[in-house]
Write a protein that binds this DNA or RNA. Structure first.
Length: 196
DNA sequence: GTACTGATTTTCT
DNA sequence: GAAAATCAGTACC
């Protein structure tokens, strides 16, 4: 099923954990690329590392919109990061998707990434946007019915339910503010995460 | 194996 | 002018 908008309206940390094991799907001109989310980070209220912390700007305006939309921005002048807006509208919170396990459209991902190595296709925020061809034009698009969607397959037989025992909680990557907050989550023992 | 560097643009000080 | 939610390549141990 496609995760409904209400899924994203809950608190950001819960959404970050619940997104683990879900599937990020990009369908474009009949070409499909799907990855299983294995690593996320929460950017929350009163969080100096969150782009919304210093108020609304042109770049982060989507963060202050309603939950369940994509927040995409350019980082270090060359890579895009993909987030899902969370929480009550206007609070400026989001979950950053940091790594995917390639599931479908793998040859397409290899082509876009210029690499054959499965483990290197989506194991980082800049890499997964490249593999799924996500760029700034996706900023603000809904995740519940557009060209980019997030699916949960938990209710189907044969798909693993992710519990607390399978989630590792640790500190976020690449930030200098609020370094000590434990707001990064990844699937235990998964080889497709960006780093230990 | 780890460590450092260049690429490149938006944003804020 | 500096820093930023990064990555790939190179140098060196």
């Amino acid at each position: 099923m496609i995760l409904p908008q209400a899924f994203y309206e809950r608190d950001t940390v819960s959404v970050a954990k619940k997104l683990l094991g879900c599937y990020l799907v990009h369908i474009e001109n009949g070409k499909t690329a799907i990855g299983r989310i294995v690593e996320t980070e929460a950017y929350v209220l009163n969080d100096p590392a969150c782009h919304a912390f210093r108020g609304k700007t042109k770049r982060n305006s989507v963060l202050f919109g309603s939950a369940g939309h994509a927040y995409v921005y350019l980082i270090y002048g060359m890579y895009y990061c993909f987030n899902a807006v969370t929480g009550p509208e206007g609070t400026g919170q989001a979950v950053l998707v940091r790594a995917l396990e390639p599931v479908d459209g793998i040859d397409l991902m290899r082509e876009r990434r210029g690499s054959d190595e499965l483990k290197l296709l989506c194991n980082g925020p800049g890499k997964l946007t490249q593999a799924l061809a996500i760029d700034i034009s996706f900023n603000g698009l809904p995740l519940f019915g557009g060209t980019i969607q997030i699916w949960s397959l938990e209710s189907l037989p044969g798909f693993e339910i992710i519990g607390a025992d399978n989630i590792v909680q640790t500190t976020r990557v690449g930030i200098s503010q609020a370094k000590d907050k434990l707001l990064r989550f990844y699937l235990k023992d998964n080889v497709y995460i960006s780093r230990k």
